[in-house]
Amino acid sequence: MSIFEDMRNKQEELLRTERLPHVWCPGCGIGIVLNAFLRAVIRRKIDPEKLVVVSGIGCTGRTAGYVNVDSFHTTHGRAIPFATGIKFARPDLNVVVFSGDGDLFAIGGNHFVNAARRNHDLLIIAVNNFTYGMTGGQHGPTTPTGAYTTTTPYGNPDRPFNIPHLAISLGVPFVARWTTYHVNQLQNSIYKALGMKGFRLVEIISQCPTVYGRRNSMKSPLSMMEYFQKNSIIKPNASFEEMELTYNGKIVVGEFRVRTNIPTYEERFDDVIRRAQNEN
């Protein structure tokens, strides 16, 4: 059996196959991201008993129900606080937060900012599909300026979050962004992030043909994929202005920041406990 066939069979073991086909729409990018994530886990040879997948609410929040490892489907926006708790109670586990843009950056924005600031030992897989897919396509904090959604029928007046810029400004050790078109690069980035320590963010620009693409002249799944293919530029040393997402504009992708020497919150906390015990 070749390594590829072996990986595909192991991937099948990491899925709750009795629940497939999943709820995601035809051509949804979350399946591609989950596919890449499971492959990276297999390549890292992580014991499924030592892996926890935490997700919030929304389309991406359903991921927790399809992985055959210990998983946690939490309340809206609170995926990172729950994951922080798991990591504190069981530091030996690999904790992965697999959630969407609405969950992580809208209602959970404050949790994201503060967890990133403290550098908790978590891997964040943020699937950014520009909109709130499950509730019918309302505009969110990552919708590009000018995009049409159900709540912005004349174009979105807001500016979107520049997520890699936000993460880098908080000193996060690993920041990467890919689109679902870059399946191999995405898998390699998650593989790299799984082997590191600290708060690691992988943002994936994903397609939502059903509610976002339909209102923005990309009706079929393939037309959204073509948009990613034609407009993405791989530029790891991009400036902050270039990282900003614009409506129908270029998408700058790459591994923007890789640092290995930043102490995690768990390490600093252990240090504090040790000093307190020595004093008494």
Partner: peptide
């Protein structure tokens, strides 16, 4: 490559 792109885990390539 089809295995990597399939969002529904529906493809097996048997060598």
């Amino acid at each position: 490559l089809c295995e990597l792109y399939c969002p529904d885990f529906a493809i097996f390539v048997e060598e």
